[in-house]
Amino acid sequence: MGCSSSLPANNAGAVGNINNENSATDSKNLRVKLVLLGDSGVGKSCIVLRFVRGQFDPTSKVTVGASFLSQTLALEDSTTVKFEIWDTAGQERYAALAPLYYRGAGAAIVVYDITSPELFNKAQYWVKELQKHGSPDMIMALVGNKADLHDNRCVSSQDAKEYADRNSMFFIETSAKTADNINQLFEEIAKRLPRPAPS
């Protein structure tokens, strides 16, 4: 696995209070459902854990479940974006269930592993699925993870970037292990989110 395994001790494993869900979206405080797609082993959950851990403030009420995580990001323009991150099971046998998860998502991250052309192909399958069945204004990011393993690289950044451009996606290479580009990934998604018109 590509990331270390320490976890924030705060609130570990708790499924959040069922009655505490009243965060409304307004022009300054956005809330977005973000779905994670990619084969098992590409490090989907490492990316998210790194993001949540990196931002981790022991006093904040971050819920650390195994597969649902939420994290609020403050942007320079004084807006905040609360990401509600929905992980999906990456095994082939569960692929048909993915539409249940990405329905209504405002953003999607499709992850592959830069050392595996096979997983890059699988990522392209997810991109096509999202284009076919996802919401048309969904922000999509293509993420080549395990960028620290550049000696074993099999998918060139150039190819991936071109593919992402052709599909109007944002492309970035990350390393959940070294935390490279993890924050940039989420900041970039946050910036691209449509802002509701101020009322």
Binding site: S5, A66, S67, Q91
Partner: peptide, 21 residues
Amino acid sequence: LLLNVSMSNDRTPSGADDFLP
């Protein structure tokens, strides 16, 4: 269960890959 196992075995939690099955 997932968190206990990941903490006591120094294993990275695999999120939905473990949860859904």
